[in-house]
């Protein structure tokens, strides 16, 4: 266990070394949030309605602010990293370390996410709570949100690991990475709340793993009318996908490594 703690510590220290990146990410997010604030305000004003698809302007904003914070917290550059390592041939050094590559990367990323949680997500939640005068509930849902967030992180990591393994086959990691980002950001409900999706699309998206990354934890944090049945269904979906993706990622990584080593890279 100790070596994993060391990895997490290294992740944290890496992050702190880059104070400018923290400031830039912070300022960037503020401007980004202001932009979506004005955009949605204009949208709601133009519609002349208070509530659209069961969401008021405030609901939408709380959702989008937290989705952005959650996205920034969980953003990992695994595919990008893999692409670089494969292109430069340095991937060999990662593979010969006496620790499984998947775990090695996982704990390094976890360290970064811990920092991100403290410097990005927590302040955002507190600010939203104060600004909206209790727009976020504070109760057992916090606990449930935490569990959902951890599951979401692992799901997100597995998705990234699956895509990263593709980089072993091709040097076109740029194209692969951008496709992944686009799919996740649209289908996870990060850019637009799933409530706005047309019903036919919504019913499909709800079955996919992507919404389990952002939509599920956020819904648990924000929505106060969830029944026990809802919780069971959402957690069930997360756990199901987690298992499928975890097995898929482990298998595909092994398979890719074997294929690539046989072909001599």
């Amino acid at each position: 266990m100790k070596k994993y703690l060391v990895l997490i510590r290294t992740g944290i220290m890496d992050k702190l070394n880059f104070r400018v990146s923290l400031i830039v990410t912070f300022v960037g997010n503020i401007i980004y949030l202001i932009t979506i604030y004005f955009l949605w305000k204009a949208i709601y004003l133009s519609s002349g309605k208070e509530t659209v698809n069961g969401m008021t302007f405030n609901d939408t904003m709380i959702y989008l602010v937290l989705a952005t914070a959650l996205f920034n917290m969980m953003e990992i550059f695994l595919v990008w990293y893999m692409g670089n390592q494969v292109r430069s041939g340095k991937i060999v050094f990662d593979l010969i370390k006496p620790i499984k590559f998947g775990l090695y990367m996982f704990f390094g990323q976890l360290g970064e996410v811990v920092v991100n949680f403290v410097v990005i997500f927590l302040p955002t939640v507190v600010i939203v709570y104060i600004v909206t005068g209790g727009g976020i509930l504070a109760g057992k849902n916090i606990l449930l949100f935490f569990v959902a967030m951890i599951l979401a992180f692992i799901i997100n990591y597995c998705i990234n690991m699956l895509v990263a393994a593709l980089c072993l086959f091709t040097e076109s990691s740029w194209g692969i990475n951008i496709m992944k980002e686009v799919i996740v950001s649209v289908l996870s409900g990060k850019s637009i709340p799933l409530a706005f999706f047309p019903n036919s699309i919504k019913s499909i998206v709800e079955l996919l793993p992507f919404q389990a990354v952002y939509n599920t934890p956020l819904t648990m944090l924000i929505n106060n009318n969830l029944s026990v049945e809802n919780y069971v269904k959402m957690f069930g979906m997360q756990i199901l996908w987690l298992m499928v993706l975890l097995c898929g990622a482990v298998w595909f990584w092994k398979y890719s490594l074997r294929r690539v080593t046989i072909n001599g890279g």
Binding site: R9, I12, M13, L16, N17, R19, L22
Partner: peptide
């Protein structure tokens, strides 16, 4: 001069 450790990293900020 970079300081050592996590506490040093925070100071460097």
């Amino acid at each position: 001069n970079r300081r050592e450790g996590i506490a040093g990293g925070i100071k460097d900020l």
